[in-house]
Simulated assay, not measured.
Amino acid sequence: MKKLFIFKFMATTLVAIVMLYPFWSATGNEAGSNGVLESLGAMGFSATSTIIAAFILSVALYCRSLQKCLSLVQPSCQAMNPKMVWLMFVPFYNIVEDFFIILNVTRSIEQEAQINQHLEVVNSFGRVSGFGWCIAQVAALFPSFLGEAAGFIALIFWVVHWRLITKVNALLMIDSLDAKIT
């Protein structure tokens, strides 16, 4: 556990350095060197504010879906406390913790599938799409066209993963309703 904490701390420090680099870089004033920061700034305050607000709202709804998924899974199958998904809102740390959240949500669904017949129709438990958006999100940190492209790819994987979690939640709700009826 101590090694995991040290790893997360070091990885978070590295993420913070990469994310803050454009703000103190001597070359940060050159056109194209600030990646998404420059793109957002070019859109103006209103558009940028709207995009940021929509993103925060989307992340909150996604976290709620993940929390619901973990809450619907049998307690013995939960690989993490459902409330821990909200760590996605901790700046810098979230980039690192997202990998662990995806891993634990995937493990929880896989464990539940062992005992829940409703999940037999699920072909994927979200490992590829979940880790796909996490990896692309890390690549998106680098200020360049490739970073912006990685951000777009991360968004696609994120939506695919979110849709899968929504499907799993619907299947788990069937089980929850069955339990209330009997």
Results as ranks from 00 to 15, higher is better:
residue 98 D to P: 05
residue 100 F to A: 07
residue 100 F to S: 07
residue 100 F to C: 07
residue 102 I to L: 02
residue 103 L to N: 14
residue 104 N to S: 06
residue 104 N to T: 11
residue 105 V to Y: 06
residue 105 V to F: 08
residue 105 V to P: 08
residue 107 R to N: 13
residue 108 S to V: 03
residue 108 S to Y: 03
residue 111 Q to A: 15
residue 112 E to H: 07
residue 112 E to L: 03
residue 113 A to Y: 11
residue 114 Q to K: 05
residue 115 I to V: 01
residue 115 I to T: 07
residue 116 N to Q: 00
residue 116 N to L: 00
residue 117 Q to I: 09
residue 117 Q to S: 11
residue 117 Q to K: 12
residue 118 H to N: 15
residue 118 H to G: 04
residue 119 L to E: 04
residue 120 E to F: 07
residue 120 E to I: 09
residue 122 V to I: 15
residue 124 S to C: 09
residue 125 F to R: 15
residue 127 R to A: 12
residue 129 S to A: 12
residue 130 G to V: 06
residue 130 G to Q: 10
residue 131 F to M: 15
residue 133 W to N: 15
residue 133 W to A: 05
residue 133 W to R: 12
residue 134 C to G: 13
residue 136 A to D: 01
residue 136 A to T: 06
residue 137 Q to P: 06
residue 137 Q to W: 06
residue 137 Q to L: 13
residue 137 Q to N: 12
residue 138 V to G: 00
residue 138 V to E: 01
residue 138 V to F: 04
residue 139 A to E: 02
residue 140 A to V: 10
residue 141 L to P: 01
residue 141 L to D: 00
residue 141 L to M: 01
residue 144 S to L: 00
residue 144 S to D: 02
residue 144 S to N: 01
residue 144 S to M: 02
residue 145 F to I: 13
residue 145 F to V: 14
residue 145 F to M: 14
residue 145 F to R: 10
residue 145 F to C: 09
residue 146 L to F: 12
residue 147 G to M: 06
residue 147 G to Q: 01
residue 153 I to H: 09
residue 154 A to V: 15
residue 154 A to L: 03
residue 155 L to I: 04
residue 157 F to E: 09
residue 159 V to E: 05
residue 160 V to K: 12
residue 163 R to H: 12
residue 163 R to T: 11
residue 164 L to N: 14
residue 164 L to V: 04
residue 164 L to K: 13
residue 165 I to G: 07
residue 165 I to Y: 09
residue 166 T to S: 09
residue 166 T to C: 13
residue 166 T to E: 13
residue 167 K to F: 03
residue 170 A to S: 13
residue 170 A to E: 05
residue 172 L to K: 01
residue 175 D to G: 07
residue 177 L to D: 08
residue 178 D to E: 04
residue 179 A to I: 10
residue 179 A to Y: 02
residue 179 A to Q: 08
residue 180 K to S: 14
